[in-house]
Simulated scan of single mutants.
Amino acid sequence: MERNLTLVALFAALIAALALIPKFSLGFGVPITAQSLGIMLCGTVLGAKRGALAVLLFLLLVALGLPLLAGGNGGLGAFMLPSSGFLIGFPVAAFVTGLIVEKWYGPSLTIVAAVASVIGGIIVLYIFGIIGLSIALDKSLLESAALVTVFIPGDLIKAVLAGFITSGLAKARPASVLSRS
């Protein structure tokens, strides 16, 4: 139990640390950040439940006002921005990513984690992001989906990185990849 709490807190801190990588602001209010890599890693390394809990802890800290989002944003106002759909989708994305890694013992952990990151950390997350963007910008779902296509190349790179990082961690310290234990 104590180990789980420590890892949940550690991965919430990892997501926050990834906000330190400079963001690229886009004209429609959703920045390109490295934090989605943290969401993917929460799922691939911690598994579904612990990964989602780490993200929920991170979001709780953001809601309490800590400036943990890219660009130093925090507080309840962060959940009213065009990017709020992505924030709301973070824990679901981590959960789905982790669930796939827990259940699918495919060709290699690198491939499983990368594919899980694409499904959970991109597709599932984009569903929430597109809906939130559509509501915030008063655009159709199709228009909002067109706006987020700019994220696809970077997120695919993050998914591949999540696969390699998870696999490397499993080789170096097998017991640390809780999604496989």
Rank of each mutant, 00 (worst) to 15 (best):
G65C: 07
L18F: 14
I111W: 05
V101M: 03
R180Y: 01
I123V: 15
V92D: 06
M40H: 04
K103E: 12
M80Y: 13
W104C: 10
L57A: 11
I119L: 14
G121E: 06
P82F: 11
L76E: 11
L18R: 00
L68T: 05
A116H: 02
I100V: 11
P67M: 04
F79P: 06
A17Q: 02
G27Y: 03
P67E: 11
A94N: 04
G72H: 13
G121L: 09
F86W: 12
L178K: 05
L81F: 05
L46S: 10
I131K: 07
A17E: 09
L7P: 14
R50N: 13
A116E: 08
G163S: 07
M40W: 01
F11D: 04
F164L: 15
S134R: 00
T6K: 14
T97G: 03
P153Y: 01
S140F: 00
G72P: 02
K171N: 14
L37V: 04
P91T: 06
L18G: 08
L18A: 07
A9L: 13
A34N: 06
A17S: 12
F86V: 08
L56T: 10
L87A: 09
L147R: 00
K49T: 14
L69G: 06
L156I: 11
L137W: 01
I119Q: 13
A54S: 14
I127G: 15
L125K: 01
G38N: 02
V45P: 08
L60M: 12
L81V: 14
V118L: 10
L87K: 02
A12P: 09
A145D: 06
I135S: 05
M40T: 03
G51K: 05
S25C: 07
V118H: 06
L60C: 11
F164R: 12
F128M: 09
G89M: 10
A93E: 03
L68M: 05
S84Y: 12
N73M: 13
V45C: 09
V160K: 02
G51F: 01
T44Y: 08
V148S: 10
L137T: 01
G72C: 12
G29H: 01
I130D: 07
R3E: 15
T166K: 01
A136H: 07
W104L: 14
L109A: 00
A34D: 08
P153N: 04
K171P: 11
S134P: 10
A16C: 07
F24T: 15
L37T: 06
R50K: 14
G132M: 02
I21D: 12
P153V: 01
G43N: 04
G29T: 07
A93Q: 09
I122W: 00
A175F: 13
L14D: 01
F86H: 12
A19L: 08
L109N: 07
